[in-house]
Design a protein around this nucleic acid. Sequence first.
DNA 1: GAGGTGACCGTACGGTGTAAGGTCGTGCTC
DNA 2: GAGCACGACCTTACACCGTACGGTCACCTC
Lengths: 223, 223
Amino acid sequence: MASAVTNETTRTPVTRDRALRAAVALADAGGIESLSMRKLARELGIEAMSLYYHVKSKDEILDGMVELVVGEMVLARSDAEWKTALRERAESARTVLARHPWAISLMDARNTPASMRFHDEMIGCLVAGGFSIPLAAHALSLVDSYVHGFALQEASLPLDESGDIAAATESIMEKRDMTAFPYLTRMAVEHILQPGYAYGHEFEFGIRLILDGLETALTSVDL
Amino acid sequence: MASAVTNETTRTPVTRDRALRAAVALADAGGIESLSMRKLARELGIEAMSLYYHVKSKDEILDGMVELVVGEMVLARSDAEWKTALRERAESARTVLARHPWAISLMDARNTPASMRFHDEMIGCLVAGGFSIPLAAHALSLVDSYVHGFALQEASLPLDESGDIAAATESIMEKRDMTAFPYLTRMAVEHILQPGYAYGHEFEFGIRLILDGLETALTSVDL
DNA sequence: GAGGTGACCGTACGGTGTAAGGTCGTGCTC
DNA sequence: GAGCACGACCTTACACCGTACGGTCACCTC
């Protein structure tokens, strides 16, 4: 479905939902700082001020965008084992946040209904799995911190347009004097620049370590 | 000296460093979005455009601010045990980022000399402790993701001015219909609203779990 | 027709980063 | 002392931002 303008007669009417989706698309394409009311309006074929008919403020748009993004994440299935559920949830969150990097800082700063549901469901699953409330709080804080932090790092990787980390890493290393950083150099050469390397692999390692650690904490002592 | 006109108060001359420190102070006080060239200039007693004598662009200011913030963090002591060094580094980073919450997203997106030093030193310490390069990469990614993610969550806690999490939590719960989120409610009542609760405690749990997990990974198998 | 309403638009204000060029005291050279 | 370079700062201007306030106009119901 092409967007933009069209003929004088027809224009699919703007709705709040359509505006929010367009906003997400704009932010995906150009980063959150490139999302302005005027650009969003242009995308929808209307004028800037007309957006305020559908929405109270830009802030409300940001809230709605977070809501959409959180909605893309799978909820923890409370019928599954806690470890499976937690892993699925974490991986889903990471994938979604990689798609919408601008949402990472936003979603922590705003708790919308969807994100509260997202948390509530997870706690339920943990409690069903034998977690005490304090241990569930620890687990939630730990996993979410890791996932969001990882997404943040992943989002700001030195990628060129092709998504190739190797080329971008090399170009950075050429620009700076690397002799001052021997270990970073080693890590780049021996690890990152190796064929088949992908930063995503680090996530697998981290989330497994965390889940195993939580299992130990669960089975050993009751906190 | 310089009698005549203007103010009797002689203005200490602006330097790049003084400008950067003022910028950090402004961001600390009002968040990064409240930092503008004009406000910064006013703070320094000059006009906006005069800043461009000391600095090439606002972006360069942001870089310099990150540099200052990273400079506040303690480096990993390479003479210490890796676990101690890693813990100290993580705790220091968390403390500093709590002081400068606006820096969290910035520092991931910009790698300045100071942040590269910060990483290089840590890798050196890990390697000295017996880590392979790939395992060191895993460890670094894991710990930094956790620390930054935690800082992000901590920064957007619902605190009122007094820093009291209980009052703020209660006010949120009053505003929404909490019957839809039974587990969140339980967690609030049984955990967060308990006397003596502080979100910082969650960090202790997480970082220990991670460090213990890394130790296991180090001693068990060579990755 | 009258009136209401839903969807949209025009104008304006105070804010933003910064390009381009101007000013003015100080210190150096001759 | 005259001339001048230069460091530090300023003025103006532009394009963009969010949004307060009010206007327009097709359509529906009575």
